[in-house]
Design a protein around this nucleic acid. Sequence first.
DNA 1: TATGAATGAGCCTTCATTCAT
DNA 2: GATGAATGAAGGCTCATTCAT
Lengths: 198, 198, 198, 198
Amino acid sequence: MYLTRERIKKAALSLFVKDGYEGARLVDIAKAVNIKTASLYYHFESKEQLFIELFNDMRNKKLANIKVLHQQINELGSAKERLFCLYSDYSNRGYEHSEELNFWKRSALFPPSFLREKIHSDLIDYQKLFIDLLLMPVILEGIHSNELKSHDANKSIVVFLSLIQGMFSEFHYSQPKAYKEKIVVVWEFFWDSIENSK
Amino acid sequence: MYLTRERIKKAALSLFVKDGYEGARLVDIAKAVNIKTASLYYHFESKEQLFIELFNDMRNKKLANIKVLHQQINELGSAKERLFCLYSDYSNRGYEHSEELNFWKRSALFPPSFLREKIHSDLIDYQKLFIDLLLMPVILEGIHSNELKSHDANKSIVVFLSLIQGMFSEFHYSQPKAYKEKIVVVWEFFWDSIENSK
Amino acid sequence: MYLTRERIKKAALSLFVKDGYEGARLVDIAKAVNIKTASLYYHFESKEQLFIELFNDMRNKKLANIKVLHQQINELGSAKERLFCLYSDYSNRGYEHSEELNFWKRSALFPPSFLREKIHSDLIDYQKLFIDLLLMPVILEGIHSNELKSHDANKSIVVFLSLIQGMFSEFHYSQPKAYKEKIVVVWEFFWDSIENSK
Amino acid sequence: MYLTRERIKKAALSLFVKDGYEGARLVDIAKAVNIKTASLYYHFESKEQLFIELFNDMRNKKLANIKVLHQQINELGSAKERLFCLYSDYSNRGYEHSEELNFWKRSALFPPSFLREKIHSDLIDYQKLFIDLLLMPVILEGIHSNELKSHDANKSIVVFLSLIQGMFSEFHYSQPKAYKEKIVVVWEFFWDSIENSK
DNA sequence: TATGAATGAGCCTTCATTCAT
DNA sequence: GATGAATGAAGGCTCATTCAT
């Protein structure tokens, strides 16, 4: 039904990631879908609107994903498994949705000027949810059950997020194989540091 | 002497950081310097060339900085101090050159397409130097002197770089005060994890 | 039967009057009829053809109206009544068909370029008929019967037409009430000037 | 100095009159000036702005002209001469500035939608001034000095304006020679009707 | 050094039109 | 009768770039 529409969105996502909002040209998006530029306007009212829809989609996916993670975590027993679950999700351990993730991260770091404010506040909202609903409870329970050292939870969160976002840069530069190894290294390091080994 | 030239470069840097290569307009750069767009061409061949010069400047500064750091490190006694020295440099602890650092990082993550390859290889070269000349020796010596746990040095490096690059995202979103606190948190965490606490 | 067709024509008339031929958009015409733009092409060959049909309709109506007026005049006794009958018709005294009249007048003054010649010659033909069949006979008979001063009939005609067309501008700018008053004023003035008061 | 700018304005005026705001194309304006379309943007920020400037120029000219007419009238002795002075000005008796006059009148009757309100109110202001400063005083004095019949001045004004605006339509359709004759006919008619012949 | 003026290339967008369903 | 989808042609506009002064 909405086939062309979806194909446009996929092509646009890809080009926005590669070239940024300003760098991406509608001609190229159209070419990738094998239609003419004018035809884009049957499906989207403007380049801005196309970008906005893409961004909102991602935002909604990420928010929906928080619920999914919440459930997954409840089905896991240990703090270690739970944290690893969150870690894996964030770092795109499996390389599965790299394009979408890159769109999300490029938008986050360098948004097109006409959406700066909205994106900024959306992201802050998202991170707040991620912390309040997932990261913080998991860590607190871990401490409570003596699985984790009784560190200041806030500090662990800062480190967790920093590590995870650091992986994104690696994602850009490392070969897939090296990247996968690094993911493991970083995780093990993090875990060693917070587990209550006594 | 080169006053206008330098003012142009400063303004360009700022706008390239804010809007990206494609998003930045020569008119705005000129406006910021209080000259007309046409005048830019007396000082620079083209927009591309202006960007390239800016990038090369940064690259050279970073390379030169490696030597500076090398010296600083030699003057410091402990592994802790040395690592902290490197950490501080990278994370822009003092917020001093944030614009330049942002230019460097934006270029690294999302380079303009006409420079993708060069930037990519320059960055890999830089990181290799940073590791080989600074990070690796410091860690190895730290281990050797029993100041650090006898971890696999490569792993510590991966973590170090990941943390440090993670701080960049924070830099974008946190208020200065929160950012400074986080820098400390991350550092303390890292240090606790690698020091040989006996 | 031709319901949609007629509704399209009505909507088109309205928009051509408001925005002119170039300014009027088929989308808006379609919207006003609650159909899609593509559907217009089931009823009309093209935008040009739609306009042409509208114009020809008006032209035919105006020509037919000449016959109607001719009859009306024959049923009236005095030159005063007869002239007033023509005056009323032209000046849209009753505000009844203002949209159609405006279409006619906008087309007359500022026709779309592809119809300039045809419209021009149609109008001249119409005015010639109006004068030869209605205005001139009425005036000549009025003079003959001593109801009118023995002015040069051609001059009276020039004045009559000028006054009547001048009312059109007023029609654009005056409020309905003021307009109706002005119509009367102009008529009385005209009549005073040509009646044979002794 | 502002040569190109002025040539653009002249060409634009001409095309706006001929084709209307929407019908006029920047390419054609540029062609008429022997420059490229893009160059127009060095002189004007947009098509709308170009039109606005043209309109404001005309408006200011018309307003300035009211002062000029005011002086001319003061130098004339009789009401007849004075009224004829106003009549001549309005009807473009000499065919001198026909393009500008046509721009003014086309804008008045069928303004581009983005300027409808402004133009409307500007025109009402202008007409008010014309009446209050020129037409009304001249007529009142004429009545006072017994040169004019003691008609209701407001009625004479309505007729005067109607006649004058009616001439505009003629201007569109008549050949220059016929037009000049008609101007005289209308004037004589008007004058005969208001002069105090006893 | 700087700029007024102009331009080529290309971008986003609009709009009338077509055509298969 | 009507429409979803697509398109050609063109339109307004932007922007890096040039060049004579």
